[in-house]
């Protein structure tokens, strides 16, 4: 009898082929109030992290940008303004509920023409080789079942010289901050989830998945192994979040 492969889903071990389904359930549940919860959970600071990511992307008019796990479209909206009518932004998300919320929100804000939407799995990106000048994945990589496979897929669809930016929760550098952050994540966060979306389990998963995500150095090593060059990371808010960058050779 063959043993089934497992992976983590927060602190829980699940069969590898079940993780995507479980993650999808979480995001179906939180999609409607995702923005509100993000603002409440981070005190609005997630906007600063995303704005810094856009600055570091150096995206300009005419570029093609892939925003993986783009969710409600915060990054895609700004990219759509930057690339102009000659550029293209693809908002991709594996989760249909998140993608629908993102699409409606972007259309409401008047972003159209240079924006397309794709329901896509980061591990199997449905785009030709060497397509994009820039790929971003903000707060999405930790939910991907096989991160190495996703990094290789991103490398494939990037143009040579194109850059990947990964914005993700990481490991705080200061032990005191880490302690306070743990208390916040495991006590306050599920409570807020319960009050606002009546779903504490999903927010407990978010907190657990952050702890299971590779730390800064490990993720940088994974990017190197996938074939990216000039990899580096920048800690933000004491390392609660880190922005990793790499270039396709």
């Amino acid at each position: 009898m063959s043993e089934k492969k497992t992976t983590h889903f927060g602190f829980e071990q699940v069969e590898t082929d079940k993780k995507a389904e479980r993650v999808a359930d979480v995001f179906h549940s939180v999609a409607g109030k995702y923005d509100l919860m993000n603002d409440l959970m981070s005190g609005g600071v997630h906007r600063l992290w995303k704005r810094y990511t856009i600055e570091k992307s150096a995206v300009r008019a005419g570029h093609k940008v892939l925003d993986i796990a783009g969710g409600t479209g915060d990054l895609s909206y700004q990219f759509s303004r930057k690339v102009g009518p000659d550029g293209l932004v693809v908002l991709a998300d594996i989760n249909a509920s998140m993608l629908n919320v993102g699409r409606d929100r972007l259309l409401d804000r008047g972003a159209a023409g240079n924006l397309t939407f794709a329901q896509a799995d980061a591990q199997y990106l449905p785009f030709p080789d060497n397509t994009f000048d820039c790929i971003t994945i903000a707060f999405g990589l930790r939910n991907v079942t096989d991160k190495d496979m996703a990094l290789e897929a991103m490398l494939r669809v990037l143009k040579p010289g194109g850059r990947l930016l990964i914005l993700e929760f990481s490991k705080p550098g200061n032990p005191l901050l880490e302690k306070a952050y743990d208390t916040y994540s495991f006590k306050l966060l599920p409570l807020m989830g319960k009050l606002i979306t009546n779903d504490s389990d999903s927010y407990r998963y978010l907190a657990e998945s952050i702890r299971m995500h590779p730390d800064q150095k490990t993720l940088q090593g994974m990017m190197d192994s996938a074939g990216f060059v000039m990899t580096e990371f920048q800690n933000m808010t004491g390392g609660i979040v880190a922005l990793h960058m790499g270039v396709k050779p």
Binding site: V45, L48, W49, R51, Y52, E55, Q234, M236, T237, L243
Partner: peptide, 12 residues
């Protein structure tokens, strides 16, 4: 290096 979050907030 200066804190990117604080600098970004100041710029906003």
């Amino acid at each position: 290096m200066s804190n990117p979050s604080a600098i970004t907030a100041l710029f906003i």
